[in-house]
Computed example of a mutant assay.
Amino acid sequence: MQKNIPVAVQMYTLREESEKDFVGTLKKVAELGFDGVEFAGYGGLSAQEVKTLLDDLGLRAAASHVPLEQLENNLSQVIEEMKILNSKYVVCPYLMPDRRSEQDYQALISILNQVGETCQREGITLCYHNHDFELARLSDGRMALEAIFDDTNNDHVKAEFDIYWLTKAGEKPMEWINRYKNRTPLIHLKDMTTDAEQFFAELGTGGVDLDAVLTTGEDAGVEWWVVEQDMSRRTPFESIEISINYLKSKLPNLLNK
């Protein structure tokens, strides 16, 4: 269906498992057939220890979610860790509720431009990951997420669109991916139940149009598919196994893993 776009799992999905056994959790991720991981912290290990562990397991560091405050106040260390991990993408993952006013979004655009420019000079790419709250309208009629990408530098700030949150906000993920074509190196693959609860679902078990997203990956310039499930009614390992098996049925490059 596509070129060999690799698949990672966002480790936030496995946060409780990682807290108990970070090394064992990464080992299980490798056994399930994932190509890499997207980090949300390093389990108390140094970046070098994590890199050694990844190499031993045959995994790659797709990206790291790093809180905005760290990007603002500790960027040099963040960049150094990314280099050690041989990871190209650092992601601003979430805005705290007290940073979501229109004035806050204007400030965020400036921050992202500055951080992104610094990252680019060091060979790292900054991405912004959305939820549904960024789909609220600003006073100029644009959604906050539109303002973030329209008003930041195309080369300095890229997107990590989360197709669950776009869908939950009443948007069509494909329209966003096409609108910002070649600016979406990372895509969060998620599904959503078709009932009124709109709960997080394993890939292929809900109502999100995953086929359309997977089919457009190469044309859109996607470099990593990232599986994430914020919450699960199964164990997280069971959930990501269902999801990776779904992707193995869709992506030929995963069949032999």
Results as ranks from 00 to 15, higher is better:
2 Q>H: 10
2 Q>M: 14
3 K>A: 14
5 I>F: 13
5 I>A: 07
6 P>Y: 04
7 V>L: 12
8 A>I: 03
8 A>R: 00
12 Y>V: 05
16 E>T: 12
17 E>W: 04
18 S>N: 15
20 K>E: 14
22 F>A: 04
26 L>R: 00
28 K>P: 05
28 K>G: 02
28 K>T: 12
29 V>W: 01
31 E>A: 11
34 F>N: 00
39 F>H: 00
45 L>K: 02
45 L>N: 01
46 S>M: 07
46 S>T: 01
47 A>M: 12
48 Q>E: 13
52 T>S: 15
52 T>E: 15
58 G>T: 03
60 R>H: 08
61 A>C: 10
64 S>T: 10
64 S>W: 01
67 P>K: 05
70 Q>K: 03
75 L>C: 13
76 S>M: 00
78 V>Y: 00
80 E>A: 13
88 K>D: 13
89 Y>D: 07
92 C>G: 07
97 P>S: 01
101 S>L: 10
101 S>V: 08
103 Q>L: 12
108 L>Y: 00
111 I>M: 02
111 I>Q: 01
112 L>D: 01
112 L>G: 00
112 L>P: 05
113 N>S: 08
115 V>Q: 01
118 T>R: 09
118 T>E: 14
119 C>P: 05
122 E>T: 03
123 G>Q: 08
124 I>S: 02
127 C>I: 05
128 Y>H: 09
135 L>Y: 14
149 F>A: 03
159 A>W: 00
167 T>D: 12
168 K>V: 15
170 G>E: 11
172 K>E: 15
173 P>E: 06
176 W>Q: 02
178 N>K: 15
180 Y>D: 00
181 K>G: 07
183 R>E: 08
184 T>L: 05
186 L>C: 07
187 I>L: 13
188 H>V: 09
190 K>V: 13
190 K>N: 11
191 D>V: 07
194 T>D: 15
196 A>H: 03
197 E>N: 13
198 Q>M: 13
199 F>H: 04
200 F>D: 09
201 A>C: 10
202 E>N: 06
205 T>K: 00
206 G>D: 11
209 D>N: 15
211 D>N: 14
214 L>H: 02
215 T>N: 14
220 A>H: 04
222 V>R: 00
222 V>H: 02
222 V>W: 02
224 W>L: 08
226 V>C: 10
234 R>W: 02
239 S>K: 04
244 I>R: 00
246 Y>N: 03
247 L>A: 05
249 S>H: 06
256 N>W: 11
256 N>L: 14
